[in-house]
Design a protein around this nucleic acid. Structure first.
Lengths: 201, 201
DNA sequence: CTTGACTGACCGACTGTTCGGTCATATTTT
DNA sequence: AAAATATGACCGAACAGTCGGTCAGTCAAG
């Protein structure tokens, strides 16, 4: 018997360290050795928990996405009008992503990796892509409820949902390289209002 | 004397090959040897034209951006109402980026590199960032003209311009991993209309 | 013959992964 | 209770593959 069953908290510490290191140095340049140091363990130990760098990428993607989905679902259960729900959804999502600075950079690369995989005819990282599809469906549901409640104009749901998600991604993307947080907030408010105005009947 | 003073066409061929290889394999995994083969020359020759992989990245960024700016400027000189100009600007930019599949993937990585550089307190790739700033200014100019002409409502120019660019980036981003071109076109039309509606007085 | 563009074998730095050994702790024995 | 034993988590030195960059030599043009 093992005196200490492979500490799950340690696997978590490795993922956390990996997120930090890979966000800092990039997916390729980020070294396993640095992750080990950051996690306060030996390099060999990393391989007791994950069989390869690639497996760390996947675990990392799963962790990040589940963090985001948790946050989104909290919103989904709130009791708001479709109008407010959508507005809140957009703002919250952007803030969540924006706050998870490290995750943002990593997801950019994982997403690009996925796009490349698709070009090669391979499978992309499924967690990330499933999550993206779920998010879109969530927005579509809000939109449908809004049209039903006569709050929104008639629309092509898929198109508008895509616009909403594009807006979220693009906003983060735009500000990923800007450090002016105040300008970010002003632009965000104006951007969301403008978007909502586009949905009026 | 050289019979052919360092053939500029060859430098171009190298860049073109680099764009192809790096888009396929990523900035880190893309090999100089492969670029040389793709360009039909020896590896050593690549170093006659560019002193390092990093210099190739920069040259590549410059080439891609100047291609895009050329396309945008053609639009800028068209004689259209602010309304149509903005609509066309967005659609054209998306189509241009979307058509330059390879460039898209590379820019994603260069942009992420830049974001990381900023985090480190270093300089990002200036070409890319200057171009991005120029694009925003171009949109702001169109918006101002539209407000002046009473075609658009009053607005926070910076916010709406950011929204427009976010829209462009995000749309491309969303569809980078989708192969359904027909859905893309439908969503694009709806998305642009919805955006334009948000600017009505 | 001179020049310089071109080449690819080669070098060395780098890093993901392996593996033999160590050690803290649990369990058993005395 | 304390000594002996067993376990497997942990470690980091060593290994092997990769790839950016160099350079000694080839070749073609003038």
């Amino acid at each position: 018997m093992s005196p200490l069953q492979k500490d799950p908290a340690k696997a978590d510490a490795i993922i956390r360290a990996a997120i930090h290191i890979f966000a800092r140095d990039g997916l390729d340049k980020g070294k396993i050795a640095d992750i080990a140091t950051e996690a306060g363990i030996g390099k060999g130990t990393v391989y007791e928990y994950f069989s390869s760098k690639d497996e760390i990428f996947h675990a990392m993607g799963d962790t990040i996405m589940s963090d985001m989905i948790d946050a989104s679902e909290k919103l989904y259960s709130m009791d708001l009008s479709p109008h407010d729900k959508l507005r809140t959804f957009m703002r919250m999502n952007i803030e969540i992503i924006f706050e998870m600075e490290d995750a943002m950079l990593i997801m950019t690369e994982i997403w690009a990796q996925g796009a490349r995989a698709i070009k090669h005819g391979e499978h992309p990282n499924t967690t990330l892509y499933n999550a993206s599809r779920d998010m879109k469906q969530l927005v579509i549901n809000i939109l449908k409820a809004g049209v039903m409640a006569q709050e929104f104009r008639d629309m092509n749901y898929d198109g508008v949902a895509t616009l909403a998600l594009a807006f979220i991604d693009g906003f983060v993307w735009q500000f990923m390289v800007s450090s002016d947080r105040a300008a970010f907030d002003r632009a965000l408010v104006e951007g969301i209002e403008s978007f909502m105005k586009g949905l009026e009947r």
